[in-house]
């Protein structure tokens, strides 16, 4: 009897703890996302380190097209932009928990690799850069890969949750999801995998030079073209404000200047928001 009573009381205590937690939920829903961001005075962009969008220069400063783009938009809105390196596969958790305010890192407008449209998870801004996925192999093996079929059975890698992941999946069933695109390059260079799928804008900036001189872009496979956009929380009113700022920066040529700096002039979409 005593034992039953004590178990009952324990259960009651657990229940009351849960109830106390749940009662915290009654929160002021009138504060919109945009107001919350303005109260903070800054917005946090979730990024992965990836040239030429967001990367560290020799002095350890964060630079890149998306870095400067976000800073320009922030200036336009009277805010400041902060950058947080995240695990790309946790991006929606980061966004929905409020740890970051937007996914701004060469984020592909399109579908997840399970075919679910990303618009189910986020609200997209205007798209601003043209991109496509591209396959990279070691330069020494380049001759082996002459068609999409030649990748069958080879080991591939792509960033988990990225657009490249679905391409890698189609090429070969034997592929690994890594936490960032830059890690895919390391996998390939170290010989852990035979091919990787990354953004063509990144490949153009890195492959075949410097640390990655022994890698080469494969032209046998040409995946579909895609575009980059910024992802915001579903239903956020901040999206429209950023869109207005982007339109203005596109009109007054600021975006073109930044794009030219990172050799992305050809990829930039003209007259955004028209």
């Amino acid at each position: 009897m005593k034992k039953v009573l004590s178990i009952l009381l324990a259960v009651l205590m657990i229940c009351s703890c849960v109830a106390a937690l749940a009662s915290c939920k009654k929160k002021d829903e009138t504060v919109t996302d945009s107001q919350q961001i303005k109260n903070k005075g800054y917005f946090v962009c979730g990024i992965t380190v990836f040239e030429p969008m967001n990367y560290f220069n020799g002095d350890g400063d964060l630079i890149g097209f998306d870095t400067e783009f976000a800073e320009a938009v922030a200036k336009e809105l009277g805010l400041s932009a902060k950058f947080q390196v995240i695990n790309w596969s946790s991006k929606y958790n980061e966004l929905n928990s409020g740890a970051i305010d937007c996914i701004w890192n060469g984020f592909t407008f399109g579908n997840e690799n399970d075919g679910v449209s990303r618009t189910q998870y986020v609200d997209f801004s205007y798209s601003y850069l043209n991109n496509s996925q591209c396959v990279v192999t070691r330069a020494a093996d380049a001759a082996i890969y002459t068609s999409a079929a030649s990748f069958a059975g080879k080991k591939g890698a792509a960033e988990g949750g990225s657009a490249g992941e679905s391409v890698a999946q189609e090429l070969s069933t034997d592929y690994t999801a890594v936490t960032a695109q830059a890690n895919a390059l390391t996998e390939l260079k170290s010989g852990a995998v035979d091919f990787i799928v990354i953004d063509v804008l990144m490949a153009n900036a890195l492959v075949g030079k410097g640390d990655y001189a022994d890698l080469a872009i494969n032209t046998a496979v040409e995946p579909e073209a895609e575009v980059y956009a910024i992802g915001f929380r579903k239903g956020s009113d901040f999206t429209a404000e950023v869109n207005a700022a982007i339109k203005k920066l596109s009109e007054n040529g600021t975006l073109a200047t930044i794009a030219a700096k990172y050799d992305l002039g050809n990829a930039l979409i003209a007259n955004i928001g028209q």
């Binding site: 915290c24 939920k25 929160k27 946790s90 958790n93 980061e94 929905n96 928990s97 409020g98 740890a99």
Partner: peptide, 13 residues
Amino acid sequence: FYVPGMLFHTNLF
């Protein structure tokens, strides 16, 4: 890290 922000829309951290 993630659950408080997702449930209550205010990130504790």
